[in-house]
Design a protein around this nucleic acid. Sequence first.
DNA 1: CAAAACCGTTGACTCTACTCCATGGTTTTG
DNA 2: CAAAACCATGGAGTAGAGTCAACGGTTTTG
Lengths: 117, 117
Amino acid sequence: MRIGELSKRTGLSRDTIRFYERRGLIASEPEPGQTNRYRSYPEETVLTLELIGEAQDAGMTLADLTVFIAQLGADDSVDGEAFLDARIAEVEARIARSKRFLKTLRATRAALGRAAR
Amino acid sequence: MRIGELSKRTGLSRDTIRFYERRGLIASEPEPGQTNRYRSYPEETVLTLELIGEAQDAGMTLADLTVFIAQLGADDSVDGEAFLDARIAEVEARIARSKRFLKTLRATRAALGRAAR
DNA sequence: CAAAACCGTTGACTCTACTCCATGGTTTTG
DNA sequence: CAAAACCATGGAGTAGAGTCAACGGTTTTG
């Protein structure tokens, strides 16, 4: 699929998609048998981009994601376990802290609801 | 308490603390009866800074936090409920997406564990 | 077939959230 | 009391993650 469709399907701008490709997070091939220089992305790129979004929400950087995505493809990895263990611990901690903050947000909301009437 | 102690107790750099103060997230007073220009922070600033950390992990920006912290003190607020409801929804969504990513991380870790032996 | 809609590259620019001087004053300590 | 440790201000610089503009090809469409 071309970049315009991918953009529509993911909600990301074309520029963002090209930016991710320069960073090595996704890859395209030239359209087969075409002389234009248009990128063509495989269907699964939609899923990869959704994964990137989730990972960013979980606090991962694009640099981390470059490593992680490389590991998704590779069947073996020397330091992969250590890397993944570290990322898992980080994300777990971030979720826990986010939940604490959510409680504060809800408590504030409740207090405000009472004060308002 | 002076900035050095606050820095030690929160793990934040002095520069970061001063940066937050410029942004209006925390406040200091001059040390009472002193002629120096040293800041003096109340005890609760430690908690505020911890809150800021959690909020950032939850994906809030400092701009959002400025509004939120103002609301913590004010007993009434016109648009407060709408603001808080929006923030709560955002944070909930971000946590949900983070959890989805965490699953992917764990699955990858498991696959790698099996492939390694 | 021409206008509209797409696509590509390059390079500069923005925004957020810090971080790092340089310079100079104040406290603490051995 | 001098050196070390601490504090302040102002301004410049950095990193991460995009975003935008300019210019020029390619496809699609009425």
